[in-house]
């Protein structure tokens, strides 16, 4: 059973509460996402799971092994990719990979089937020094290095941060593949839209876990009506809606405004009416399905 159980874990750095009473269960062969902004405690949580930090209180069991007592055994079964750059910039792509393979007592050849998907992207640059790779490539190489010893449990700390949307898509495809060959993957990200690609996600903020749900549950559990509003003057619209007495939450969302009403029964017409009285034109209002970001913003507000 390659699962992870985190019970009542807290961690302080000086006066800062990095983690407060975290409880989390990651099941075997799950693609589990930890979503939250910088400084929410994701990295600390991952480092504790990877046996690199020791929690102040609470217990962490990875595959039934205690993260403090059995750290050596845990290190044998996990693949860990730190959030910051963790390659040797003066070594080439190939050399980095070979080095990590030998360190973990294996060869690139032996586990080529695992890294093949990722390595194909890198192959054209294999003689290039890692320091000269672009952001997306670096992350793919780091993932290759974390995979080269065929770990059972993969811990990836913000692998897609600073990576462009196309590379991010490719990255997530790779993660889905890894899951399909039986790996358990926990991955953190600051991008809310990536939540829907996970089996289950937890939202983190200020060292606390806001919720643990499947992406569908998050959206279903939102329980409120959310409207997408487009007008000819978005800034003014935002201002008027902020002043509206029935507004629960309103924010810009790309080129539209997302609006949440406190009333259970609310019709598009009523909103259109309100905006018209404020002399706004070209009003389009649609009831939409909330995104993870909508849910996060609302959860943040509630906290």
């Amino acid at each position: 059973m390659y699962d992870l159980k985190i019970s009542d874990v807290s961690k302080k750095f000086g006066d800062v509460n990095a983690l407060r009473d975290i409880n989390l269960d990651v099941e075997e062969n799950e693609l589990f996402g930890v979503i939250g902004p910088d400084g929410s405690g994701k990295t600390t949580l991952f480092r504790i799971a990877a046996t690199l930090l020791v929690q102040d209180t609470g217990k962490v069991k990875l595959s039934g092994l205690d993260n403090i007592k059995d750290y050596k055994k845990i290190r044998e079964i996990i693949g860990y990719m730190p959030g910051r750059f963790s390659l040797y910039p003066d070594l080439t792509v190939e050399e980095n990979l070979k080095f990590y393979a030998t360190v973990f007592g294996t060869t690139v050849k032996e586990n080529y089937d695992i890294i093949k998907d990722v390595y194909l992207h890198l192959e054209p640059f294999k003689k290039r020094r890692a320091g000269k790779l672009s952001g997306g490539m670096k992350q793919k190489l780091a993932l290759c290095c974390a995979l080269v010893h065929k770990p059972k449990f993969l811990i990836l700390d913000e692998p897609t941060t600073g990576v462009d949307p196309v590379s991010r898509n490719e990255f997530w495809e790779i993660l889905r593949n890894l899951k399909s060959i039986g790996m358990t993957v926990i991955v953190s990200t600051p991008y809310m839209d990536e939540a829907k690609l996970c089996d289950r996600v937890t939202l983190m903020q200020n060292g606390c876990i806001l919720s643990v749900q499947t992406p569908a549950e998050i959206i279903e559990g939102f329980g409120k009506k959310i409207f997408s509003i487009r007008t000819d003057a978005l800034t003014d619209t935002l201002k008027f809606l902020n002043e509206y007495k029935y507004t629960e939450n309103v924010f810009l969302y790309g080129d539209v405004i997302h609006y949440i009403d406190i009333r259970k029964e609310i019709k598009v017409d009523i909103l259109t009416q309100y905006l018209r009285t404020n002399e706004l034109k070209n009003i389009t209002i649609k009831e939409i399905e909330p995104s993870v970001e909508d849910c996060f913003l609302t959860l943040m507000r509630e906290k």
Binding site: R47, T51, L52, E76, F85, S86, Y100, V103, F104, C145
Partner: peptide
């Protein structure tokens, strides 16, 4: 500083 120590630590070295 490179962050590579993190990976070396979790390796069997």
């Amino acid at each position: 500083e490179f962050g590579t120590m993190e990976v070396l630590l979790v390796s069997p070295l």
